[in-house]
Nucleic acid binder design. Structure first.
Lengths: 199, 199
DNA sequence: CTAAAAAGCCTAGCAACGCTAGAAATTGGA
DNA sequence: TCCAATTTCTAGCGTTGCTAGGCTTTTTAG
């Protein structure tokens, strides 16, 4: 009875449609503009349909965030791989990798500000504290760890340095997005950060 | 005719009352709970009175933020002064000052999470980009600059390093508040940060 | 001291919000 | 073709930010 199967598939497609529409709307007009009515209009269904897929609006934003975690992981690992390939095991390979990861992260945040907010700024129900972290986010963090590891003080596990590296990038991303830093000097700040860790 | 004067003073007091009530409510229940009705209830006036003092809710949050800028400046400068006094012009005076400022900043953020959000996280109308920065915030940033300056690469003005230092602390503060970092290792992360800059 | 003018405040209401119950419509199997 | 099950929509509740207009209080003038 492939009728059930077909329905199941259609439902999943519609779920994805909702998530995509929410993301586009947020990116275009900000998360405040993502209301159940506007979103229902966009996907051409009524509001209750949204609630048959997601518990509430926050769950939709969380689904968008999850999408972002995957894309961020891809961006970071690819950037690191590309940098490594370019610097063919040369001496500066590690620091180039670090710079590549930093730039990729800030580019990602700058290019998808609403997505980034869903992932790391908006108060979300994705419980990070209880260890229930999405697998895709764990992967992104692993990319950080690998980039930082060569510069960890011998004898330490480098976990704190990794967290600090991430925090610094997060701070740069959010303050830059809020126009609280000199807009034209982001590259310089990255150089300083990479220099401090790898120098 | 001191009648005008008296009224003016009463109005200012009531303005302050509103700001204080908003801050307390936000700190107690989060900014989402700060609604015009609840706030009006707390100050024992009707909603329109709020609007006779502030353009809208965001303006009230901005007033709270402004209050925070002043307090943060005080906290940072005092911490730095205390560290300097303790390390009587010794060799490590500068790095102790840096650590003191970092810890004071993170303590401030941790002790007043809602206030910190109003200052640096919530989307606000306080226009930072156009240079129209509150004087009190400029002072806080100056405290950062002075703490970082001893460690700037000779020949540079250290502005990027200062922005990076602030960004790192901001990232640590917000990710810690969102329980996205190991809650028990904040001190260690600060040590790493100070070590990178002053080491 | 009284009455008109000014100022201040509150009641009541609008549009839009998140979310949901129950009616209406569509679909699948006999 | 008809019935039952599923799906979808209409309509509505309570709450939000914000405001118009009436009411009360205070100030001024006679």
């Amino acid at each position: 009875m492939p009728v059930q199967e077909r329905k199941q598939k259609a439902r999943e497609q519609r779920s994805q449609l909702i998530v995509s529409a929410a993301r586009e709307l947020a990116e275009a007009e900000g998360w405040d503009a993502v209301t159940t009515r506007k979103l229902a209009d966009r996907v051409e269904y009524s509001q209750p349909v949204l609630y048959s897929h997601f518990k509430n609006m926050d769950a939709i934003a969380a689904a968008v965030a999850l999408e972002g975690f995957g894309e961020l992981t891809t961006a970071l690992t690819e950037a690191r791989a590309a940098a490594k390939a370019a610097a063919r095991a040369g001496e500066k390979s590690a620091s180039e990798g670090l710079r590549a990861v930093a730039e990729a992260y800030l580019d990602f945040a700058g290019e998808h500000p609403a997505l980034y907010q869903a992932m790391f700024v908006r108060p979300t129900q994705l419980t990070f504290a209880t260890g229930e972290i999405p697998a895709s986010l764990r992967e992104a963090f692993a990319a950080f760890r690998e980039a930082v590891e060569p510069f960890a003080r011998p004898g330490t596990d480098g976990e704190s340095l990794t967290e600090l590296f991430w925090s610094s990038l997060h701070g740069l991303a959010t303050l830059q997005a809020g126009a609280r830093l000199r807009q034209t000097h982001q590259q310089e700040r990255v150089e300083v950060l990479v220099g401090l860790i790898a120098g």
